[in-house]
Each structure stands twice: as structure tokens, then as C-alpha cells.
Amino acid sequence: MQLQFFVQLLVSGIATGAIYALMAVGFALLWQTSGTINFAQGEFIMVSSFIILWLMGLLHIGLVPAFFLAMFISMFIFGFLFKRILVDPLLKYGDVPLIIATIGLGMIIRELTRIFWGANALPFPSLVKNKILIFGGLRVGTADLVTIAVAIVIIAALQLFLNKTFVGRSMEATAQNQDVARILGINVDRMILYTFLINAFLVTSAALLVTPKLLAKFSSGETFGLIAFMAAIIGGFNQVRGALIGGFLIGIIDNLAKFYLARVHLPFTDITLNLSPYALAIPLLLLIGVILFKPEGIFGRKEERSI
């Protein structure tokens, strides 16, 4: 029974973690190529889900066509316009003004969403109708399986694109050293723009996967952004792979902590403690531990600077 529950927790943790990973990868990508820490990332995801719902209602189309249309809208607004209007003018002043600007942007998006779509949470259709599959006592929803599969396909395709294509490798080169990339003849500005477009694609994909579970609500971006940021720091801000694993780690650890802390049996006594109110602290403790002992993240690349 205990093993079965453990596997069940692992599977549901992976399903949630896969979505966190998608969010975190976009975070890490933007940081690597343009030095942008986008605190509006969660709001990008949140509003993408509303755009999908809006398109479905407006054009009377299904979820998948609405997703692809929303993806183009997101790429234009959260990719192209975001870079041109907010990031490009502010980047030269350093990280802090841009961080403050993205926090402000997140607040504006949040309130505009509330004004246009209201404050109530809205149900969001799932890619597939959820059916419960039972494998030897393990109960897995088809929606969770599809979420994991889609997230893995997107991330694998992204890795292939970055490592195996000329454009992808140019983007990697830009991320590693923009000056050297320029000397090699790479159009650095274009590569950075591509990164923003890819991030917009990732946030729309995350919206498609996360919203059936978390519902479309104007305030949910704060949670998404916080989790993506934590996942990126834990895994490694400067490595796509790190952010990816950070997302999965948070999903799994969160689930395991909630389950096992609910009944902690003190050894050599009959005392059982219920520590479930403190489960939320476990991912945060991991975050603090990483910042203290491995600030580049568990799978991050150590960056050294000499003066």
C-alpha cells in the first residue's frame, strides 16, 4: 500500500512538475540570452489561457485551433512587443529597472484581465476528456498522462532545436557570450528576439496544460510566476536542463512532503505528529539551501567573473 501510494504521489508530482518545468524553462531562456528576469511570466501564462477561452467563444472553434491562434497572438504581444517596447529600452540600465518594470507589467496585466474577463475563476477544457486508468492499483488520469507527454515532447523538441539546428546553436552561442557571437557573424538581436518568441510559445503551452487543473483566474499568475522562479533557481537559472529538473523537483517534493508530513511517527515512542501545515516550507527550505550552498542551482553552470 505504502509503495503504491508513493508511486501515485510520484506520478501526480511529475504531472504537476511537468507544467512547472515548462514555465521555468522560459524563465531560464530569457535570462540566458538577454539577461531578462521576467516577473510577469506568470501573468503571461494566465492571460494566455484567457486568450484561448476568448478565441474559442468568439470564433466558435475547438481548444486546439484556439491554442494555435493564441500562440501567434502571444508570440506577437509577449514575444515581439514585450521585447521591443519594454525590454530593449530598459536593458541598458541594468537588471533592476527591468525587474521592476516586469513586476509592474504583471500587475497591469492582472488588473486588465480582471476588468475584461471578471474576477471569477473559469473552467478550462482539457486536451482530452479525463478518464481514470488503473494500472495495478495505480490510478492515473488520462489528462495527467497527456500533460506529461505534451510537456516532454515540447521540451525535447526545444532541446533538439537548440542543440541540432543552426539557429538553435546560434541562440546558445548568444546566450554564452554575445560579443563572441557577434564576431562569429551571428545576428545577436535576432537570436534574442527568437528567444522571446520561444518563451511566448512556452507560456501559451503552459497555459494549455496548467489551466484545466488550476482554472483560469486573473490572480493565478502570481502563483505561476513564483513557482517558475523557484524552479529556475533550484535547478539552475543558466541552464535549460536545470530549470526543467527544478520544475519536476518542486512538483514531486511538494507532493511527498504533504503526504509524509501528515503523520510523522516519532521513533521509540507512540507519538505521531501532524506536520502537514509545515509542508509548504519544504520546497522553500530547498530553495534556501540551494542559494546558500549551490547558488548557481543544482544543475546550473558556475559563472566566474574576474576583474
Binding site: 504521489l9 493565478s220 502537514s276 509542508a279
Partner: peptide, 19 residues
């Protein structure tokens, strides 16, 4: 038999359900 604490904006309730 058991009191289970959860958080606002919690995404996954599988741990509580299994408990």
C-alpha cells in the same frame, strides 16, 4: 482520525486524498 492542512492556490490534492 486526521486533520489535513492545505494551502490557498494549491494545485494538487492527491497527497490529502491518499491520506
Amino acid at each position: 482520525k486526521l486533520e489535513l492542512s492545505t494551502e490557498q492556490q494549491q494545485a494538487d490534492f492527491t497527497p490529502e486524498v491518499l491520506q
